[in-house]
Design a protein around this nucleic acid. Sequence first.
DNA 1: CATGCGTGGTA
DNA 2: TTACCAAGCAT
Length: 299
Amino acid sequence: MAVILPQAVPVIDASTLIDWYVRAQRDLPWRRPGVSAWQILVSEFMLQQTPVARVEPIWLAWIARWPTPSATADAGAADVLRAWGKLGYPRRAKRLHECATVIATEHGDVVPDDVDTLLSLPGIGTYTARAVACFAYGKRVPVVDTNVRRVVARAVHGLPDAGSPSTRDLADVEALLPDDETAPQFSVALMELGATVCTARSPRCGVCPLEHCGWRARGFPAGTAPAKRVQKYAGTDRQVRGRLLDVLRGKDSPVTRAELDVAWTVDTAQRDRALDSLLVDGLVEQTADGRFALCGEAD
DNA sequence: CATGCGTGGTA
DNA sequence: TTACCAAGCAT
C-alpha cells in the first residue's frame, strides 16, 4: 500500500542536517579551504569505489606533485599509474590523466563548472560531474552517490536499503535540496550521514540527527531484496591484472615476458588473457623488441 | 541494464 | 576464514 502524498515539507530538514554536519564532519583534506576545483576532482576520482582512509595519503602526495591539470597532463602516463599505487581500478588513473589533458588543452587549464561539460570528460559520470559542480563551484545540483541513495531510501521511503540506481534518485534529492546557497553543504552533509551514521552494515541510529526516518517509523523492517551477487576477487582476471601491473609498477624499464609470467602461474591461459586485456585497456604496452612496460613509460 | 574492473579492512 | 563492503564508470 504505497502512500502517495504531495511532499510540501521535505522529510529531511536541511538546517537540522547541516547543524549536525558542522558538528560531526570528518576533517578530510580535500574539504579544507584553498583546495582547487582540480584537486577536488582528483579526490572524486580516487574515491570512486575506494575508502577514504586509503585515498587520503595518496591524494596528499598527488596534489603536492601535480597541483594542476596541466602539471598532471605533462606527467608521463607510467608515472601517473605508479603514483596511483594500489588504490585499485587503475583505469581510473589513466582516465584521470586523460581528463587532465583535455582540461589543459581544451579548457585553458580550468575545470569546467557545468554538469554537461564535466560529463563529457573521460572518467566523469553522473556522480562525479555533479560532485565537482557542487563541491568545487557551489552549484545547486543534486549529488547522488550510494550513501545518499541509502539515506533517502530509509528516511524518505522507509526502505531498508536503496534499490537499483535510477533517474528517480535525482528527483528525490532535488526535492530535498534547499533553495538557497546552503545546497552544497546540505549535499555533503547527506553523504557524510550515509558514510558515518546511516551505514550499510550496522547503522548507528542512536546518534542519527534526523527527526523523521521512514524506516525507523516502520520498525526497521528487514530487507527482502535478494542482495546483488558479491564480487569475487581471488582467482579472477582482476586479481591477475593486479599482479601483472604490480610487477610493472616496480620497474622503470620494460620487462620480458618471462618476468611477467612468474607473477601468475596458476592458469597460464588466464594470465595471457589478463595481459591482453591490459594491452587493450592501454595500461600496458609492448616495446618493439617484445618486452612489456606501463603505458607511456618511454614518454 | 548487467557486467567487469583492484585492493584491503572489518565482522 | 569467508563474505561483505568502500564518494562509480564505461560498455
